[in-house]
Nucleic acid binder design. Structure first.
Lengths: 239, 239
DNA sequence: TCGATGCCTTTGTATGATAAATTTTGCTGG
DNA sequence: CCAGCAAAATTTATCATACAAAGGCATCGA
């Protein structure tokens, strides 16, 4: 769940090349310069560069072969659910299209997760969701709200007990991240979704899967509509 | 989507250490031997080892810090949707619990994907699904059926046009892989799910999202029941 | 024209050395 | 005896260089 360490040198190289690829500055099919040349141009040893290339290769962004060189792989080979890839996309390409897709993913994942959580949550897991909810209640600004909100949705995913579901938190994280950015300007009633969260919490507490699913579904539908509204109001080049 | 190349040396190291970690032979919290010692014990250079460690680190399996050493991260930090991690789990830990979770994921993803595909598929994408269906029809043995089945479900995911959905194909791949292994013994009517697939194809062709969703849902429910049945019949230690 | 063989470029692997970071230890002063 | 700071030791991080292997390209021959 943790992004690659940006402090280390090869971490910086990963981030640099990764963003260049994801942003489209380096297109699929392009071949990178030779390793020693690229290493020199980035002011790192070939060794550090190679470690970075291996990481990018693990994310499906590139592929290296002797003699042929290292080339960018097609977009559908990328590990689109990787935490770094998602964050790089969010950082460089907040197109309407991408936001829409993120919302779609969320709408698939979270209601199902809420239902599963209502079915199988342990006492401890419920307590964690409850704690997050209270922190949302107590939040005094958008920043506090943001971390509490993330905690809430993370706790719901945790309560499913399905580790693959939990790994999908990276997607939810991206969605909420975009939302917070876009709603930072209109800092008015940032707690408006509290009732929705309460319904979800309550349904999970009472072990009512279908109620939890519907409540979560309603919350997300509302959230997407809200996002759409703010996006239209906000400053944008293309109409 | 492609697993790490096992031909290269560091690829072998990744696989070796990865399976040892995922299988539980190396437990979370354990610290690996020092890099030079580990490199020597695995008969590779420290360089190749480090590249492997970086890849495992990118998958969230390990974390390295100076002086402290390299240690196995807790399971919920692992990138459970990574193609390699999934395949290593399938190879070493086909517990009932894990199969159940895979089925749950599939039941969440595929109906939603079918609905989205029915809504947005292009002509070309539909053609690809159709082609896969015909290959399933024409399959003469379980092996041919397996590749065609994978093609079909992959084509449906592709037709959603959502790249994150497409990346989830790794999960479906794992589920079907397990299914094929378990159903290899009873090679009787391997085409029994053909009508289900036809309904899905038809609904997607006619742009009927809810019909497609229900058809896919029915297919998966049936598939899970079937898997459960075979699993009980099969040779197992624990009842 | 086709095919095989040798060369050449690029990634893959190995080795040794130095830097940086962090924990531990030990020293000093109160 | 304890607190706090400084030095040391250990481990990863980075660098530099050399050689091996693989894959394409050209050349040469039939």
């Amino acid at each position: 769940m943790k992004a690659t360490d940006a402090r280390s040198l090869h971490g910086q190289v990963v981030r640099e090349l990764g963003t260049r690829i994801v942003s489209g500055e380096l297109k699929p099919g392009d071949v990178l310069p030779r390793e020693d040349a690229l290493a020199e141009s980035m002011q790192v040893s070939r060794n550090a560069l190679r470690e970075a290339l291996k990481v990018l290769s693990a994310k499906g962004l590139i592929e290296a072969r002797p003699k042929t060189g290292t080339r960018i792989r097609p977009r559908d080979a990328w590990n689109q659910l990787d935490a770094d890839v998602l964050s790089w996309r969010c950082a460089t390409m907040p197109t309407d299209d991408f936001i829409e897709k993120l919302g779609e993913m969320r709408e698939i994942i979270e209601p199902a997760a809420a239902a599963a959580a209502a079915r199988r949550r342990t006492q401890t897991q419920l307590a964690r969701i409850d704690t997050a909810y209270r922190q949302m209640e107590a939040a005094r600004d958008t920043s506090e709200w943001a971390v509490a909100d993330l905690s809430f949705h993370n706790a719901v995913l945790q309560a499913t007990g399905n580790e693959m579901m939990i790994s999908l938190f990276t997607v939810i994280e991206s969605v909420l991240g975009m939302f917070f950015v876009l709603s930072a300007q209109t800092a008015g009633d940032f707690k408006y979704s509290l009732p929705h969260h309460h319904k979800v919490l309550d349904a999970i507490r009472r072990n009512q899967p279908e109620v939890a699913r519907k409540a979560m579904q309603a919350m997300i539908t509302d959230s997407r509509a809200n996002l759409e509204k703010r996006r239209k109001k906000g400053v944008r080049k293309a109409s």
